[in-house]
Design a protein around this nucleic acid. Structure first.
Lengths: 237, 237
DNA sequence: ATTACTAAAACCCGAGTAG
DNA sequence: TCTACTCGGGTTTTAGTAA
């Protein structure tokens, strides 16, 4: 499983593989895979004949089993078929996990400084994150694409919850934190342990991510507005 | 993101897509993507000429940027390229999450009955799983393939830990539990809430999974040795 | 060393159509 | 209806080779 590169999927099998995942995906929507080449061709973006040929080839390869019913065919994906799917899946998972989220440093409204300083939050940061944060946040602006991936990644991680509280008749909402590491793009030698804050209010505004850390990050990483910063999320949860 | 089927990848783009993920995967192993068509063709399983053309096509498609150095080319994957990768990734993730693990019912050595009955464990099961388990385990034998996928799934879930303890000079190790639902294959109407036990000692022996539940499962699901049982893991963690 | 062009061979596609 | 065959045309591949 680890050392040797087993039967890897060849380039020439890509179209078959592609057909296979489309079949498998039908299972996530329906109870069983019942296809007609006259319908399946729409999914694949090919002619009926090609869709039919794909199914034949998948069967020949041993990736599926077919049972022709009256005017529909019942498909079963074999262990080998799933193996082919998940082999690529593992590959993409690596890609996904190692994907570096890059943001551009921008100046915030200095709201961050205010919120971090509030005692009700600050004490929790100290206790739950394990460091005394600098009183201010680093604001990183993300592209749609990087923002979408960050969101997806965060949804798969377990946040450290900073509880909300009420003080002097004002309510302060809870904040989700995700431990991370940040560094200046192309300068991965100077890294800094940090945490991403996910505050519903600010986070969803304009693809801005707020980062806190112990040192003053602009100085520690030697960055200024417009510089690119890499965010690495800690995968442990 | 949810409703409409955006620019989906067509069957004819499968070979390019395949080349793209192979490039991206190189990034997970090396710091940057430096390829030679003379090397890359081995990864793809094609000739050097085809590998070269793939890189040209990927550039044309806007999935990569190329910078030809002396006798190597430095590749950068564009946002669009990653988008193409992750679009398929989401699809496979659905497939993976919905994959049904099927095991064959076998008779165990009745060790399960003994362990479940031990008070130190039993009380924790009751408290942490929320049901009083039947004093015995259902032993399901898995194929290599299903076992590998189960293992991978479990590694991505947060277990309910049943603490180990010492009693009368004997040590009892901790047990990881994963809440699940089981039913007889082809009979998804009669399902049963259950938990998978992951005991290092027994679990790794011969691809046997031990399942506990409140009722006597053999009776409740109307199953006997050799019958196939589906295990669905709860995705919440 | 490479990359990538040319050209012929091999492959794939889809219209027509049989079963 | 369906599936899947044949076959002409188009595309893709690879060997040879130039740059």
């Amino acid at each position: 499983m680890s050392k040797e590169e087993k039967e890897l999927i060849k380039s020439s099998e890509a179209t078959e593989w592609f057909a296979l995942i489309n079949l498998a995906h039908i299972l996530t929507e329906k109870q069983e895979i019942l296809v007609k080449s006259t319908e399946f061709c729409k999914t694949l973006g090919t002619s009926q004949q090609t869709a039919s040929r794909r199914l034949q080839n998948l069967e020949k390869k041993g990736w599926i089993r077919r049972e022709k019913k009256f005017n529909v065919q019942k498909i079963e994906i074999t262990d080998e078929g799933y193996h082919a799917i998940f082999h690529i899946f593992d590959k993409i998972k690596d890609i996904y996990e190692r994907f570096h989220i890059v943001g551009t440093l921008v100046s915030g409204a200095d709201e961050g400084r205010y919120y971090v300083s509030i005692k009700g939050y600050y004490e929790q940061f100290k206790k739950k994150l394990g460091f005394e944060p600098y009183k201010g946040t680093l604001n990183l602006e993300l592209s749609d694409h990087h923002y979408a991936i960050l969101t997806q990644k965060l949804n798969n991680l377990k946040p450290i919850i900073i509880e909300g509280f009420t003080e002097e008749n004002r309510g302060y909402g809870s904040v989700s934190c995700y431990t991370s590491v940040v560094y200046k793009l192309n300068n991965p030698d100077t890294i800094c342990k940090s945490a991403i804050l996910r505050v519903e209010r600010t986070f969803h505004k304009a693809h801005i991510v707020e980062v806190i850390a112990e040192p003053y990050l602009r100085q520690f990483l030697n960055i200024k507005d417009g510089d690119k910063v890499v965010i690495l999320l800690n995968n442990n949860y």
